[in-house]
């Protein structure tokens, strides 16, 4: 059924038909099939039917469908791109917030460390001051005591000197000298 006449003739040559066709060809005009006007009505009719139906089918069914598929895809891609852009914005915002927080925390940590350092320094200073004051006080006390002791010692020196001088004078002149005179003499010597 699919075969062209050429093939049909190869397989099953119909003698009579063959003959007439040869005659046709030699006759000229009708010999060249594309210029054989007797076939035109049939070709035009069937072209109109087949191409017309083809056109209607494509116009009504196929092309709207493919157009729709492409449109849905384009919308979907645009939507997905929007979504991706939104997600990226969110991620950027999160990164910025995180960095802000990190900077804040760093500042705060710095402040805390500074405060602790200051407090420690102040404590140490106060400690040192109190220790120094204590020592100062102790020094003063000690000096005071030394002064007392020296004074007492110095006073004793006078008495001893008077006693010794009295004893020496008594031994020399064999007479007990006047205490007042000895004291005067000793104080004069000193």
């Amino acid at each position: 059924m699919f075969v062209t006449p050429g093939y049909a003739q190869e397989t099953a040559p119909a003698e009579g038909e063959l003959q007439t066709e040869i005659v046709h060809e030699e006759g000229g005009e009708a010999g060249f099939p594309p210029f054989d006007t007797s076939t035109y009505p049939s070709q035009l009719l069937w072209l109109a039917i087949t191409f017309g139906l083809f056109y209607l089918f494509l116009q009504k069914v196929v092309l709207p469908r493919i157009g729709n598929i492409l449109e849905v895809r384009r919308d979907r891609i645009a939507h997905d791109l929007d979504q991706a852009a939104r997600n990226k914005e969110e991620a950027d915002a999160a990164v910025a917030a995180y960095e802000q927080e990190l900077a804040d925390a760093r500042t705060k940590a710095h402040a805390i460390a500074q405060a602790a350092q200051d407090a420690a320094k102040a404590d140490a200073e106060a400690e040192r001051k109190s220790v120094e004051a204590d020592l100062e006080q102790k020094l003063v006390e000690a000096e005071r005591r030394i002064a007392i002791v020296r004074e007492a010692a110095m006073k004793d020196v006078g008495t001893i000197a008077e006693d010794t001088a009295g004893a020496i004078v008594e031994a020399l002149i064999d007479r007990k000298p006047d205490d007042a005179a000895i004291a005067a003499a000793v104080s004069q010597v000193r």
Binding site: T4, Q9, F32
Partner: peptide, 10 residues
């Protein structure tokens, strides 16, 4: 069979 025009025969 080798006629090159025959393929256009209707």
């Amino acid at each position: 069979a080798e006629d090159p025009i025959h393929q256009f025969q209707i």
